[in-house]
Amino acid sequence: MSLLQVKRITKHFGGLTALSDLSFSVEEGKVFGLIGPNGAGKTTLLNIISGFLKATSGNIILQGKSITGCHPHILASRGISRTFQNGQIFGNMTALENVMVGCHIRFGGEFLNAALQTGWSRRQEGEIRQVSVEILASMGLQAWAQEPADSLPFGLQRLLEIARGVATKPRLLLLDEPAAGLNREEKERLTLEIARLRCQGITIILVEHDMDVVMSICDRLVVLNYGQKIAEGTPEEVQKDREVVAAYLGDEDGFHA
C-alpha cells in the first residue's frame, strides 16, 4: 500500500516554475530516493511534503487523506518528520536534549503542569528521558549524550538530527542530503543507520547527491530535472536511463556523479 501520494504538484516562485505537474507515490517501508541536478526542485518538494511551503496546485495524500497545506507541526503529529539540508540541530542544548525535543509530541504537559511540577509531569519527564536515551544509544551516540550538540563532530551532528527525527515516531522521515560533507566512513555508517530505520518500518524519502549512498540504499528512485520527473524506477533501471545520464553528465559516459 502506498503511504504517500504526490499528486500533480506544481509550484511557482514568481515567474519561475520550480515543480511542474509532479506525481509519484511512495510505498510503505521503503527507502525512496529523490535525485536530480542542483536546482531540480528536490528540496522544494520536501518543503511542500513537510508543510513548510504551500504548493501552487496539486495534492499530497498521506494514507488516503489529504494533508495539502497542513502546518509542519500538524504533519509531525500525523507522522511526518524531517532533517534539513543545512543541518538544524539545536546548538543551545545537549545531544540528549535534542532528542528529548523530538519526543515532544509523544508526551504532554504544558506551562501550568510544568510550573507546579506535578507528579504526573515528573513521571512524563522521566519517560521522555528514558526513551531519548534509548534512541540516542540505538544510533551509537550515547557517549555524547551530555555534550553540547554543536560540539559534536559534523558527521555525528547529522546522525543526531536523524535521531531527533526518529524520536517523533514518524511513519515517514524526510532526509535532505544527509551525506553532504561526510567522509567515507561516516557515509557507510549513515547508510547502515538508514537501512536499520527501514527495518523498523519507517518509510524514508532521501534527497541525496552522493550516488554511492543513493544506489546502495534506495529501493526506488525518482529523478527530477527542472522541476519535472524525467525518470522513475529501481536504481538499476534509472542508471540505464538515457535522459537521466544526459541530465547529470551531459554525455553518455556513465553515472558516477
Binding site: 509542519p72 509531525a76 518528520s81 540541530i89 509530541i105 510544568a114
Partner: peptide
C-alpha cells in the same frame, strides 16, 4: 520548573531553530 521541563525545551528549540522545532511537532 518551566525551563527545565518539556515546555522549556520547546522554548529553547524555538530560540535555536524555529523550522526544526516545527518539524518536531512544536
Amino acid at each position: 520548573n518551566i525551563v527545565k521541563s518539556r515546555v522549556g525545551r520547546a522554548l529553547r528549540s524555538i530560540h535555536s531553530s524555529e523550522i526544526a522545532a516545527q518539524a518536531m511537532g512544536i
